[in-house]
């Protein structure tokens, strides 16, 4: 059972990891992101240290590919222990095979897929075989009511209204990085307007965290030369000005890089 206290500890650890990645993206970090988080967590005494390590491991899996985004976006090469640290988190909580069943494990599988794929691309000596890809998301259907849930996911059935569809894309935002192109990215291409709506809807409700996640896809699409209904640079700037929290700001900084606005 996940207690409130455990949830808070995971969130704090994820925020810390995001701040490390943010520093790395801005060129102000150390030589590792994941390894330094694990070392710091393990450094505490006794039981606290062991619990902290487990929590930090979970945080890495929570951020998924985002933890490695600075290496993709800036071309920096980390110290060798970085890759060992990422492999440790994967060994401690092995990714399950892509599920066919209900949705949350399916989202989990995609986030894991992103992390494992980036590790394979970036780390020397990692087997290059791509991990099995989970199936794609349901398609966004502009003819159904906006809150409509897809009847069967992800294997087929009716399409989905743009509100839940855009929220799910937000949950998959760690895949929105240069060099990745999967059925999820294909869904983003065909749902550009729904993503613009989703980001706008979140901003209107001052939910900057969700807005930043959905905006990742818009920045990815802009970099892919897809025409957008809104100005992604202004959208990111709005979130940068009004949003907060390291994970949100990490999304902002990743968007800046994808839009060619780094250093803003």
């Amino acid at each position: 059972m996940i207690t409130e206290r455990s949830r808070a500890a995971h969130c704090a650890s994820a925020e810390l990891l995001a701040s490390r990645a943010l520093e790395a993206l801005k060129g102000a970090g150390g030589s590792t992101i994941v390894a330094s988080l694990l070392q710091e967590a393990a450094g505490a005494d006794g039981t606290t240290g062991a619990t902290g390590l487990v929590t930090a491991t979970g945080a890495v899996r929570l951020l998924g590919a985002d933890a490695l985004a600075p290496y993709v976006l800036t071309g920096q090469t980390p110290a060798p222990e970085e890759w060992a640290a990422v492999r440790l988190t994967l060994a401690a909580l092995p990714p399950a095979a892509p599920p066919r069943g209900p949705e949350p494990p399916w989202i989990r599988a995609w986030i894991d897929w992103g992390l494992v794929t980036l590790l394979a691309r970036l780390a020397p000596g990692t087997p290059q075989a791509s991990p099995p890809m989970p199936s794609g998301p349901p398609h966004c259907d502009s003819t159904v009511p906006r809150h409509h849930s897809a009847t069967r996911t992800p294997q087929g059935g009716s399409g989905e209204g743009w509100v839940p569809w855009a929220l799910r894309m937000g949950q998959l935002a760690s895949l929105a990085l240069p060099g990745l192109d999967t059925p999820v990215h294909e869904a983003a291409r065909s749902g550009a307007e729904a993503l613009a709506r989703g980001a706008t809807r979140s901003l209107l409700r001052r939910d900057f965290v969700t807005a930043a996640r959905v905006t990742r896809w818009l920045a990815w699409l802009a970099a892919d030369n897809v025409a957008l209904a809104l100005d992604p640079a202004l959208l990111v700037e709005d979130i940068a000005l009004r949003g907060g929290g390291n994970r949100c700001l990490l999304d902002v900084e990743i968007c800046h890089h994808m839009l060619g606005l780094e250093g803003v």
Partner: peptide, 11 residues
């Protein structure tokens, strides 16, 4: 507003 449709998220 409708005639010039600025970026919509400050509505």
């Amino acid at each position: 507003w409708l005639g010039s449709t600025p970026q919509p998220w400050h509505l």
